[in-house]
Design a protein around this nucleic acid. Sequence first.
DNA 1: GGTCAATCTAGAACGTGTTCCTATGATGGA
DNA 2: TCCATCATAGGAACACGTTCTAGATTGACC
Lengths: 205, 205
Amino acid sequence: MSTTNSLTVEELGSAAQRDRRKRILDATYELASDGGFDAVQMRAVADRAEVALGTLYRYFPSKIHLLVSALAREFDRNEAMLKEMGPIPGGTAAERVIYIMKRTTRGLQGDPKLTEALTRAFMFADSSVAAEIHTVGMSLTTMLTHAMHSGQPTEHTEPTAEDIAIARVIGDVWLSALMAWVTGRSTAAETGAHLETAVGLLLRD
Amino acid sequence: MSTTNSLTVEELGSAAQRDRRKRILDATYELASDGGFDAVQMRAVADRAEVALGTLYRYFPSKIHLLVSALAREFDRNEAMLKEMGPIPGGTAAERVIYIMKRTTRGLQGDPKLTEALTRAFMFADSSVAAEIHTVGMSLTTMLTHAMHSGQPTEHTEPTAEDIAIARVIGDVWLSALMAWVTGRSTAAETGAHLETAVGLLLRD
DNA sequence: GGTCAATCTAGAACGTGTTCCTATGATGGA
DNA sequence: TCCATCATAGGAACACGTTCTAGATTGACC
């Protein structure tokens, strides 16, 4: 269980295992991006990743785990990108938060099928996926509190309890709005407007 | 398509059809209450309701429709109960809203499996269930705006756009919190606390 | 009562997530 | 080098949502 590697933080395991894991997540990503939740069929993922079905299940114990893990990877990448971006534009916390949300939302809406697949999985997850879900939640909260203080004197202080509470509420609204959009119950414009209203209500400086 | 009936507003159809519909929803309710989402198996529902599988699908085109319809019926009943209850206790809008939310949440948490089944279905619904979802959403929004104004001079005026926006945000938070609770990712206490915080942030009179 | 259309029953059949089994490698220790 | 262990491939098998088919039943209208 350890030969010449342990380079990345990603996951433990041999290079071959890390490679399989990556191939599986890539295949998931492609299928989801192509045809959404329904197109991510376990046999299809296994085929495309060139692993056996049993191996796929050994790496990810369910379709939901698989998709939520893919989502977590996306969030990680998104977070890394944001870090490189420097200070977030906007004169008030509300403006900066809205900027970030719109940016992220636009990214998601640019790949609707993928977003549908990931959001669905997120919503359907049970406690066995709690760890992955928590990762995503923390990622989102961090992103939001960061936006609130970005470029401010308070930038490098810990977010207050109220900051975190507000971030969580915004996260909830965002998830609901995304859900409504993904399921075709509201348009992209409505989603954006609702989000903006919510941020306005919560962050009246 | 009309002999001696058309008594209730419930649904169109003969008495036998209304009866079947009720038996199906009752069976759904019982199975959900017993074993949650997974226990609501279409064959089991059909058996318990004493209808054929094909008939079940004729009444409800999918498991999700079935569960969301059951949820809508519960919300109707809840709304009727609230109407009979008279003015909602609490000196501020926030207090009244929290009162209502806690009351409803407590009701749901008293039957965790049922709540799990209904919430899951709600989250998994796509646009083909939009109508039912919209019903539930309106029901919730109405309940909340009503609570905000209950016993106030403004009681019988239309809720403002801001009222509705706030109600929607609270609804979003509630759904997320319920989701987290249902999937075992947070406790009942945490759910309540988060909700209370959110209401406090949104309704600082 | 007789007829027709709609509805219902019973159950087979199909698709996809999940589990399980066996044979075949890969790996690491003696 | 040889052995013990464990991961993988390949694919059958199973569970449950959904669809489909064939025949019985019902109810409206003559």
